[in-house]
């Protein structure tokens, strides 16, 4: 039970990390937040932290050999989901950056 919860957190932080990475690019930032330029460096740094957190959580839950595979696949799936959201429902990603100016 605790393990499932930790894994779910790992998946969530992988998704958030890829979301921040995408929004650090101006063309995607503008799909979500009108016109201004993104705080690119900050978003990339946050993305790196979120992705590392995801890896850490995956390693906590499973044997390292499995955890590495889970993490790589979570990153791929997240990137795909972020891209699909940007294509069809970009505003749904707004909560990820609503705190930024």
């Amino acid at each position: 039970m605790v393990e499932s919860l930790l894994l779910a957190l790992g998946v969530a932080s992988g998704f958030i990390g890829m979301g921040w990475l995408a929004l650090s690019m101006s063309q995607h930032w503008q799909q979500v937040r009108d016109t201004s330029l993104p705080p690119a460096k900050l978003l990339r740094a946050l993305a790196a932290v979120a992705l590392l957190t995801s890896l850490f959580l995956c390693l906590w839950v499973d044997h390292p050999s499995i955890a590495v595979l889970v993490w790589v696949m979570v990153i791929s799936a997240s990137a795909f989901l972020v891209a699909m959201l940007l294509a069809w429902r970009p505003r749904w990603l707004k909560p990820l950056v609503s705190w930024a100016h």
Partner: peptide, 13 residues
């Protein structure tokens, strides 16, 4: 191995 989420991620891949 026994890991259902990873199995589904493989299907997605």
């Amino acid at each position: 191995f026994e890991h259902w989420p990873l199995r589904w991620l493989y299907v997605l891949g």
